[in-house]
Design a binder for these strands. Sequence first.
DNA 1: AATGAATGAGGTTTCATTCAT
DNA 2: TATGAATGAAACCTCATTCAT
Lengths: 200, 200, 200, 200
Amino acid sequence: MPKVTEAYKEKKRGVILEGALDCFASKGYQGTTIDDIAQELGISKGAIYTYFTSKEDIYIQLMEKRMNQMVKSFHKSFAHLPSASAKLKYAFQRFIEQPLEDLRRLVRFHLEFTIHSSRNEEMQALMDRNFQKAIDLIAEIIAEGKQVGEFRKEVDEQTVTSLFWATRDGIALQYLSSGEKEQFTGLIKGMEEMLFRYLV
Amino acid sequence: MPKVTEAYKEKKRGVILEGALDCFASKGYQGTTIDDIAQELGISKGAIYTYFTSKEDIYIQLMEKRMNQMVKSFHKSFAHLPSASAKLKYAFQRFIEQPLEDLRRLVRFHLEFTIHSSRNEEMQALMDRNFQKAIDLIAEIIAEGKQVGEFRKEVDEQTVTSLFWATRDGIALQYLSSGEKEQFTGLIKGMEEMLFRYLV
Amino acid sequence: MPKVTEAYKEKKRGVILEGALDCFASKGYQGTTIDDIAQELGISKGAIYTYFTSKEDIYIQLMEKRMNQMVKSFHKSFAHLPSASAKLKYAFQRFIEQPLEDLRRLVRFHLEFTIHSSRNEEMQALMDRNFQKAIDLIAEIIAEGKQVGEFRKEVDEQTVTSLFWATRDGIALQYLSSGEKEQFTGLIKGMEEMLFRYLV
Amino acid sequence: MPKVTEAYKEKKRGVILEGALDCFASKGYQGTTIDDIAQELGISKGAIYTYFTSKEDIYIQLMEKRMNQMVKSFHKSFAHLPSASAKLKYAFQRFIEQPLEDLRRLVRFHLEFTIHSSRNEEMQALMDRNFQKAIDLIAEIIAEGKQVGEFRKEVDEQTVTSLFWATRDGIALQYLSSGEKEQFTGLIKGMEEMLFRYLV
DNA sequence: AATGAATGAGGTTTCATTCAT
DNA sequence: TATGAATGAAACCTCATTCAT
């Protein structure tokens, strides 16, 4: 029964990753114990090791999965939108509409992962790969906008794109400190305005 | 001779904080052991506990000190500069001229601290206080620029200032991942351009 | 069809014991996991527990089987030999001709078992029973040799026999450390010479 | 206060090794937990790690120490004895007079160590070095005996010496199984007789 | 004030065994 | 009968903190 078993295992892996995300997001990587994850999921410590080889393995696979999902989901939404501007605006909108409590936790998780991975060659490479996907996602839009004439030809899409993500991350980081939703929304809006002023 | 003693203690505290920064920056908070710090400084574990009550105490005081120094140093430099634009440009320049290996380590330290503190009420408050100082530092310039007519009256200095720092942090974060100096400089320059386009 | 089933089970038990021997011999008792044995055999962990009640059960039955086989095999060979001296010489020859890599692994297995069993009453008893068989095997030859006049009447067959096995084990143990075949063979020869000098 | 501290540490190291020997001898290497050793000594787990880097480190240093002590002690005793025969007889006598309960435990420890080390290159090398010391100890006596004319010139001292230790170990191993003191003594005596018959 | 040995809670990982399928 | 996911008790080792010297 390989098919059933494999599907089951895949599902279970996903469930464990969900639980792990909850823990990592609220307590951090080092602050999360395998026991925490097991308890969160109502399973045994040993069960986790049936699906993952180590705590770090869970952490890495979790990030990989989330990045892939994010990129795929954006791509899907972009497909239905008519113009580069519309796509970009959609991206901003999505940041704003994100449930904020989620945001806090996820930001924490992503930032912590970035820092953690910056001390480890292998994870660094993984992050580079994933980051490139995110870059491509937006850079394509800018390029499209330039081609169609929506955006100025002079802007460098690599730089703008990088700035886009950098600012998004920076705002999220600030939200992490301040915790004020109004301000977060205001900054995203401000960034949007500044970016469009620059692009057109 | 209480005066001498107090001065001595203050100096020693500073020395310990220096050593601790080296450790925290390269190995992270959790990755740094008290032994690491002691070894780095060539003193004993016990000595550290004479000056600080806990590992977290060191971490907090270290951040406090660095923030104060940074703000004070900027203030001092700003005093000699003629206009709001000049001041803002100076700030950008300073980011670019920062020794990059330092930057990597320090960014790591600051980001990690931010995340760490976001899980702890008391540290959160400390960070808020410190962040406010950084905000004021730049917001005053924007306000000055608006008053003098260098910048548009419509810009909201709080928002712009927050964006300024957010983007700076975001760029630093990205640099942490990519490690490419060219790109880092390019992004800072891009951000500068975008900001001035927005302000004037 | 109980007969078929029983035969099948018996055969399977034997197969599992073979695989277990490979594992125990190369990784030791504690170093061998049930998973190792299962993998070695290409079966599941559960299957092993159908035939044996525990890891120790496998260990014990394996030793029991090997001892019985060894004694039976010697007995068979002895039957064709004309004199006590010839039998004894055959025994020495067999030690020497044993494939040495096998020897290393098997010695390890046997010694480890002996030590392991010395901490457990039940296993101790088993080992005593088995050891007695080995003793009888040789003691009979000595007795035969004394009766026929090949060996001196004064020698005590129990003592000589025990010494015979003890020396064999000691040499094997030494070979375990040194790993030099020449030396191993030399020692067996030396022991043979010493023993015959004593017996005749 | 380096001198005091170093002496203190050395002493403590010795104390821990004593306690560890008790544990290893009665429960085996794998069967002994660090907690066992700590409890045996009435100290904390952590304290042990102040003096040793790992469980294996304890095990190795313990063996090293015991071997050195044994060789040194024999050498000292041999110095007062007039002839090669006397020295050899003394060695046998010492085996016999050894407190038997000790013997059981120590034999177990030594044999287990030998097996354990046979699966580890580094430990193997250590054992080789130690074994060589034991070999030299006896080989010198045999050589001396040959020179003085006490022993036959034809005997090969390396072989005889190896056999000497091999048999000693084999007898000890058997004693481990049987646990009968009479028999142990008998075997040692038998071995002595056989050896002298061979040497003279 | 400084030292560093000692403590012991707590973390990750392993693995013999069970049991639903 | 066979499977292998699940369990959970241990095991080793680390390290912040204390305290006698």
